[in-house]
Amino acid sequence: MSSQAAPVEAHGHHDVRPIRKAAMWVFLGSECMFFGSMIATFLLFRNETADGPGSELFNIPFTSASSFVLLMSSLTMVLAHNAFGNRDARGTRIWLAATALLGTVFLAGQIFEFTEFVHEGLTLSSSSFGSAFYMLTGFHGAHVAIGVMMLMAMFYLSLDGRLYDDRGLNVELVGLYWHFVDIVWIVIFTVVYLLQV
Protein backbone atom coordinates (compact mmCIF):
# COMPACT_ATOMS: atom_id res chain seq x y z
CA MET A 1 0.00 0.00 0.00
CA SER A 2 1.44 3.30 -1.02
CA SER A 3 1.97 5.80 1.71
CA GLN A 4 0.52 8.52 -0.49
CA ALA A 5 -3.12 9.35 -0.20
CA ALA A 6 -5.27 9.17 -3.29
CA PRO A 7 -4.82 11.99 -5.76
CA VAL A 8 -6.73 15.09 -4.90
CA GLU A 9 -7.85 17.01 -7.90
CA ALA A 10 -7.50 20.71 -8.23
CA HIS A 11 -10.87 21.41 -6.67
CA GLY A 12 -10.20 19.33 -3.63
CA HIS A 13 -12.30 16.53 -5.06
CA HIS A 14 -11.17 12.99 -4.94
CA ASP A 15 -11.08 11.09 -8.17
CA VAL A 16 -13.90 8.69 -7.44
CA ARG A 17 -12.88 5.84 -9.75
CA PRO A 18 -10.15 4.26 -7.59
CA ILE A 19 -12.46 4.61 -4.58
CA ARG A 20 -15.20 2.64 -6.30
CA LYS A 21 -12.74 0.02 -7.46
CA ALA A 22 -11.42 -0.39 -3.93
CA ALA A 23 -14.94 -0.90 -2.64
CA MET A 24 -15.70 -3.43 -5.38
CA TRP A 25 -12.58 -5.43 -4.54
CA VAL A 26 -13.54 -5.45 -0.88
CA PHE A 27 -17.04 -6.60 -1.80
CA LEU A 28 -15.61 -9.41 -3.94
CA GLY A 29 -13.48 -10.49 -0.98
CA SER A 30 -16.69 -10.80 0.97
CA GLU A 31 -18.23 -12.83 -1.85
CA CYS A 32 -15.28 -15.25 -1.71
CA MET A 33 -16.24 -16.14 1.85
CA PHE A 34 -19.90 -16.44 0.83
CA PHE A 35 -19.20 -18.96 -1.92
CA GLY A 36 -16.44 -20.62 0.11
CA SER A 37 -18.95 -21.44 2.85
CA MET A 38 -21.39 -22.95 0.38
CA ILE A 39 -18.65 -24.97 -1.35
CA ALA A 40 -17.57 -26.29 2.05
CA THR A 41 -21.17 -27.25 2.76
CA PHE A 42 -21.38 -29.10 -0.54
CA LEU A 43 -18.15 -30.99 0.15
CA LEU A 44 -19.56 -32.02 3.50
CA PHE A 45 -22.73 -33.40 1.97
CA ARG A 46 -21.60 -34.70 -1.42
CA ASN A 47 -22.27 -38.30 -0.44
CA GLU A 48 -25.40 -37.63 1.61
CA THR A 49 -27.85 -38.53 -1.13
CA ALA A 50 -30.28 -40.46 1.12
CA ASP A 51 -30.12 -43.37 -1.37
CA GLY A 52 -31.64 -41.08 -3.97
CA PRO A 53 -30.04 -39.61 -7.07
CA GLY A 54 -26.67 -37.89 -6.66
CA SER A 55 -23.75 -36.87 -8.77
CA GLU A 56 -24.34 -39.67 -11.33
CA LEU A 57 -26.98 -37.37 -12.80
CA PHE A 58 -24.37 -34.88 -13.93
CA ASN A 59 -24.01 -34.62 -17.68
CA ILE A 60 -20.36 -33.61 -17.90
CA PRO A 61 -20.25 -32.91 -21.66
CA PHE A 62 -23.31 -30.65 -21.41
CA THR A 63 -22.06 -28.70 -18.41
CA SER A 64 -18.60 -28.45 -19.99
CA ALA A 65 -20.19 -26.76 -22.96
CA SER A 66 -22.10 -24.29 -20.81
CA SER A 67 -18.97 -23.64 -18.75
CA PHE A 68 -17.13 -22.91 -21.99
CA VAL A 69 -19.85 -20.40 -22.90
CA LEU A 70 -19.43 -18.64 -19.56
CA LEU A 71 -15.64 -18.55 -19.91
CA MET A 72 -15.97 -17.04 -23.37
CA SER A 73 -18.13 -14.34 -21.84
CA SER A 74 -15.09 -13.27 -19.82
CA LEU A 75 -13.23 -12.82 -23.10
CA THR A 76 -16.00 -10.65 -24.54
CA MET A 77 -16.06 -8.70 -21.26
CA VAL A 78 -12.35 -7.98 -21.65
CA LEU A 79 -12.99 -6.80 -25.20
CA ALA A 80 -15.84 -4.58 -23.97
CA HIS A 81 -13.62 -3.07 -21.29
CA ASN A 82 -10.85 -2.56 -23.83
CA ALA A 83 -13.20 -0.79 -26.22
CA PHE A 84 -14.52 1.28 -23.31
CA GLY A 85 -10.96 2.31 -22.47
CA ASN A 86 -10.38 3.35 -26.09
CA ARG A 87 -13.61 5.37 -25.96
CA ASP A 88 -14.94 3.18 -28.75
CA ALA A 89 -18.66 3.40 -28.00
CA ARG A 90 -19.76 1.07 -30.79
CA GLY A 91 -17.27 -1.66 -29.84
CA THR A 92 -18.22 -1.34 -26.19
CA ARG A 93 -21.87 -1.73 -27.07
CA ILE A 94 -21.31 -4.82 -29.23
CA TRP A 95 -19.14 -6.62 -26.71
CA LEU A 96 -21.39 -5.74 -23.79
CA ALA A 97 -24.31 -7.24 -25.68
CA ALA A 98 -22.26 -10.33 -26.53
CA THR A 99 -21.31 -10.78 -22.87
CA ALA A 100 -24.92 -10.44 -21.73
CA LEU A 101 -26.00 -12.92 -24.41
CA LEU A 102 -23.41 -15.52 -23.39
CA GLY A 103 -24.41 -15.09 -19.76
CA THR A 104 -28.03 -15.64 -20.70
CA VAL A 105 -27.12 -18.80 -22.63
CA PHE A 106 -25.34 -20.09 -19.55
CA LEU A 107 -28.41 -19.35 -17.42
CA ALA A 108 -30.65 -21.12 -19.92
CA GLY A 109 -28.37 -24.15 -19.71
CA GLN A 110 -28.60 -24.09 -15.93
CA ILE A 111 -32.40 -23.90 -15.99
CA PHE A 112 -32.48 -26.84 -18.44
CA GLU A 113 -30.12 -28.80 -16.19
CA PHE A 114 -32.15 -28.10 -13.05
CA THR A 115 -35.34 -29.20 -14.81
CA GLU A 116 -33.72 -32.46 -15.82
CA PHE A 117 -32.46 -33.14 -12.31
CA VAL A 118 -35.83 -32.46 -10.74
CA HIS A 119 -37.38 -34.94 -13.18
CA GLU A 120 -34.85 -37.52 -12.07
CA GLY A 121 -35.86 -36.94 -8.45
CA LEU A 122 -33.10 -34.64 -7.19
CA THR A 123 -34.78 -31.68 -5.50
CA LEU A 124 -33.96 -29.06 -2.92
CA SER A 125 -35.48 -31.24 -0.21
CA SER A 126 -34.76 -34.76 -1.48
CA SER A 127 -31.42 -35.04 0.32
CA SER A 128 -28.66 -32.99 1.90
CA PHE A 129 -26.76 -33.44 -1.36
CA GLY A 130 -29.65 -31.85 -3.23
CA SER A 131 -29.95 -28.98 -0.73
CA ALA A 132 -26.25 -28.15 -0.94
CA PHE A 133 -26.11 -28.56 -4.74
CA TYR A 134 -29.08 -26.32 -5.50
CA MET A 135 -28.08 -23.70 -2.94
CA LEU A 136 -24.54 -23.39 -4.32
CA THR A 137 -25.36 -23.45 -8.02
CA GLY A 138 -28.55 -21.47 -7.47
CA PHE A 139 -26.79 -18.60 -5.72
CA HIS A 140 -24.17 -18.65 -8.47
CA GLY A 141 -26.91 -18.48 -11.07
CA ALA A 142 -28.47 -15.53 -9.22
CA HIS A 143 -25.11 -13.76 -9.36
CA VAL A 144 -24.91 -14.38 -13.13
CA ALA A 145 -28.45 -13.05 -13.51
CA ILE A 146 -27.61 -9.86 -11.61
CA GLY A 147 -24.50 -9.53 -13.77
CA VAL A 148 -26.60 -9.82 -16.92
CA MET A 149 -28.90 -7.10 -15.61
CA MET A 150 -25.95 -4.79 -14.95
CA LEU A 151 -24.57 -5.52 -18.43
CA MET A 152 -27.93 -4.65 -19.94
CA ALA A 153 -28.02 -1.42 -17.94
CA MET A 154 -24.58 -0.56 -19.33
CA PHE A 155 -25.78 -1.44 -22.82
CA TYR A 156 -28.77 0.83 -22.34
CA LEU A 157 -26.55 3.70 -21.20
CA SER A 158 -24.31 3.19 -24.24
CA LEU A 159 -27.26 3.69 -26.61
CA ASP A 160 -27.46 7.43 -25.99
CA GLY A 161 -23.83 8.04 -25.16
CA ARG A 162 -24.15 8.27 -21.39
CA LEU A 163 -21.60 5.53 -20.77
CA TYR A 164 -18.95 8.02 -19.72
CA ASP A 165 -21.14 9.98 -17.33
CA ASP A 166 -20.06 9.86 -13.73
CA ARG A 167 -22.40 7.27 -12.25
CA GLY A 168 -22.22 4.72 -9.51
CA LEU A 169 -21.69 1.86 -11.88
CA ASN A 170 -19.36 1.69 -14.87
CA VAL A 171 -18.01 -0.86 -17.31
CA GLU A 172 -14.88 -1.42 -15.26
CA LEU A 173 -16.79 -2.34 -12.09
CA VAL A 174 -19.20 -4.58 -13.97
CA GLY A 175 -16.18 -6.24 -15.56
CA LEU A 176 -14.57 -6.93 -12.18
CA TYR A 177 -17.79 -8.46 -10.95
CA TRP A 178 -18.31 -10.51 -14.08
CA HIS A 179 -14.80 -12.01 -14.02
CA PHE A 180 -15.27 -12.89 -10.37
CA VAL A 181 -18.50 -14.73 -11.09
CA ASP A 182 -16.71 -16.65 -13.84
CA ILE A 183 -13.83 -17.61 -11.59
CA VAL A 184 -16.24 -18.87 -8.98
CA TRP A 185 -17.86 -21.03 -11.63
CA ILE A 186 -14.48 -22.58 -12.50
CA VAL A 187 -14.14 -23.61 -8.86
CA ILE A 188 -17.72 -24.89 -8.67
CA PHE A 189 -17.42 -26.83 -11.93
CA THR A 190 -14.20 -28.45 -10.72
CA VAL A 191 -15.32 -29.24 -7.20
CA VAL A 192 -18.94 -30.19 -7.83
CA TYR A 193 -18.89 -31.77 -11.28
CA LEU A 194 -15.37 -33.02 -12.00
CA LEU A 195 -14.05 -34.22 -8.64
CA GLN A 196 -16.16 -37.26 -7.97
CA VAL A 197 -14.23 -39.69 -5.85
Partner: peptide, 18 residues
Protein backbone atom coordinates in the same frame (compact mmCIF):
# COMPACT_ATOMS: atom_id res chain seq x y z
CA UNK B 1 -29.47 -22.59 5.39
CA UNK B 2 -31.46 -22.18 8.59
CA UNK B 3 -34.15 -20.26 6.74
CA UNK B 4 -34.32 -22.84 3.92
CA UNK B 5 -34.47 -25.69 6.41
CA UNK B 6 -37.37 -24.01 8.16
CA UNK B 7 -39.31 -22.93 5.09
CA UNK B 8 -38.28 -24.96 2.04
CA UNK B 9 -37.62 -28.40 3.52
CA UNK B 10 -33.89 -28.50 2.83
CA UNK B 11 -31.72 -30.84 4.87
CA UNK B 12 -28.72 -28.84 5.96
CA UNK B 13 -29.01 -29.38 9.69
CA UNK B 14 -31.66 -32.10 9.92
CA UNK B 15 -32.25 -35.28 7.94
CA UNK B 16 -28.99 -36.33 6.34
CA UNK B 17 -27.49 -32.98 7.31
CA UNK B 18 -25.29 -32.08 10.24
Amino acid sequence: QMFFDRNFGTQFFGGGGD
